[in-house]
Design a protein around this nucleic acid. Structure first.
Length: 154
DNA sequence: GCCAACGTTGGC
DNA sequence: GCCAACGTTGGC
């Protein structure tokens, strides 16, 4: 089992939005970055853990957790002319963009601001700290456990 | 294949 | 609103 960090702008799609979906399962679509796509395609598996991270907002940080509940599959939005994620150049017989379904797990007892992550020695190697921009990132087991401790203590 | 110009992300 | 750190595009 592997762990990942998914970024979302809470105004667009929040952890509460995921929770409110049918069976608390939502489609993680709209990934239009090859690095993130490759991670989905080559590494993300059903049952993996997901840190739900809020970016580009007033309070940015880890809000809670979710679980990957599907295998990767073609993102339907790339073929939807109405969608801002439509990609007319994506070949229908070999879709360029993938997505997965995730299911709500928990909302942190303590919201973990990025500042707190940056201050924590055990989390200094997180991709989040080293390379800010990637929207889907690997998280090590140790990092996951440290985050869970911060999320649930106190 | 290079690289300049442009676009995006996302913390500050 | 700014801008650093990327990623993408397109002319050559």
């Amino acid at each position: 089992m592997a762990y990942w960090l998914f970024k979302s702008e809470p105004d667009e799609y929040s952890l509460e939005d995921l929770k409110a979906e049918k069976n608390s399962i939502g489609r993680w679509d709209g990934i239009r970055n090859y690095q993130a796509r490759n991670i989905i395609r080559d590494h993300i598996k059903q049952g993996d853990g997901v840190l739900f991270y809020y970016s580009s907002c007033k309070n940015f940080g880890v809000a809670g957790t979710a679980e990957v509940v599907s295998a990767p599959y073609p993102d339907p939005l790339q073929f939807d002319p109405e969608s801002k994620y439509c990609d007319p150049k994506s070949p229908t017989n070999n879709p360029r963009w993938l997505c997965v379904d995730i299911q709500y797990r928990q909302t942190n007892k303590n919201f973990i601001p990025l500042k707190e992550i940056k201050q924590n020695e055990a989390l200094s190697d997180m991709v989040l700290v080293k390379q800010g921009r990637l929207s889907i990132q690997p998280v090590s087991k140790d990092e996951w456990e440290t985050i869970m401790m911060l999320a649930n203590d106190g």
